[in-house]
Computed example of a mutant assay.
Amino acid sequence: MTENEISSKNIGAAIEVHKQLGPGLLESSYEKCLAFELIQQGLEIKTQVAVPVIYKGNKLEVGYRLDILVEEKVIIEVKTVSELAPIHKAQLLTYLKLTGIKLGLLINFNSIKLIDGVKRVANNL
């Protein structure tokens, strides 16, 4: 399955979660429900994946965790903010660079229409 196919399934699952719950809950609630939806679709996921920083050739565990990794190919960062800010995109892009993954999705569940809160971020290795 390609990154784009995975991305499409991820967005569909997020829309389903948003339809069921609406905006206004904590990130952790949406993350758990989205993980459930993705598993129901038969996708392999990992949640709260540690992302080490490589500094001068040394792998340092500094506490970074990405929300959901899907099929080892797409990172999903779940947000519940009034609007996505440039720092959110920068955070996801950093995770993409640190992991070598090409595609990520920022999903802001605190949107009236979820599709307005979805941003694709590409790592142009």
Score class of each variant (00 low, 15 high):
Leu69His: 12
Glu5Ala: 15
Gly117Asp: 04
Gly117His: 08
Gly42Lys: 12
Asn10Asp: 02
Leu106Glu: 05
Glu27Gln: 14
Lys73Phe: 06
Leu92Lys: 11
Ile107Cys: 00
Ile75His: 11
Lys89Leu: 14
Val121Asn: 08
Arg65Cys: 07
Ser29His: 02
Leu69Trp: 04
Ser82Ala: 13
Leu96Phe: 14
Gly63Ser: 14
Leu34Gly: 03
Ile6Arg: 08
His18Phe: 05
Ala35Ser: 13
Glu83Leu: 15
Gly22Ile: 09
Glu37Arg: 01
Thr47Val: 10
Thr94Gly: 10
Leu92Cys: 10
Glu27Pro: 06
Ile112Thr: 03
Leu21Thr: 07
Lys97Met: 13
Ile68Gln: 00
Ile45Val: 05
Glu27Gly: 05
Pro23Ser: 11
Ile68Phe: 13
Val78Tyr: 02
Leu38Phe: 04
Thr94Tyr: 15
Leu38Asp: 02
Leu25Cys: 00
Phe109Tyr: 04
Ser29Leu: 13
Leu125Ala: 12
Asn110Arg: 11
Gly104Met: 09
Ser8Trp: 10
Leu96Trp: 13
Glu37Leu: 04
Ile15Asp: 03
Arg65Thr: 06
Glu5Val: 10
Leu96His: 12
Glu27Phe: 00
Gly57Gln: 07
Leu105Arg: 05
Ile107Ser: 02
Lys102Val: 00
Asp116Gln: 10
Gly57Cys: 09
Tyr55Asn: 09
Asn123Tyr: 15
Glu5Ile: 12
Ala122Cys: 10
Glu83Met: 14
Val53Ile: 15
Leu114Val: 12
His88Trp: 03
Lys59Thr: 14
Ile76Trp: 00
Ala13Gln: 04
Glu61Trp: 09
Gln41Gly: 08
Glu3Ser: 15
Tyr55Val: 12
Leu92Glu: 04
Ile112Gln: 11
Leu60Ile: 15
Leu105Pro: 08
Ile11Gly: 08
Gln91Phe: 06
Ile6Thr: 11
Ile11Arg: 13
Val74Ala: 05
Arg120Pro: 00
Lys102Ile: 02
Val118Pro: 01
Tyr64Ala: 09
Gln40Ala: 13
Gly57Asp: 02
Thr47Cys: 14
Leu96Pro: 10
Gly63Gln: 14
Leu125Lys: 14
Gly42Val: 04
Leu114Cys: 04
His88Leu: 06
Tyr55Gly: 01
Leu25Trp: 01
Gly117Leu: 11
Val62Gln: 14
Tyr95Val: 07
Gly104His: 09
Ile39Ser: 10
Ala122Val: 07
Ser82Asn: 15
Ile76Glu: 05
Glu44Asn: 08
Leu66Trp: 09
Thr2Lys: 13
Glu37Ser: 06
Ile115Gln: 15
Ile76Thr: 00
Val62Phe: 04
Asn108Phe: 04
Gly100Trp: 11
Glu77Tyr: 03
Pro52Thr: 15
Leu105Ala: 03
Ile6Lys: 03
Ile54Gly: 05
Lys9Cys: 02
Val53His: 08
Val70Arg: 06
Asn123Gly: 03
Leu93Ala: 09
Lys46Gln: 12
Leu38Thr: 09
Val121Cys: 03
Ser7Phe: 02
Gln20Tyr: 02
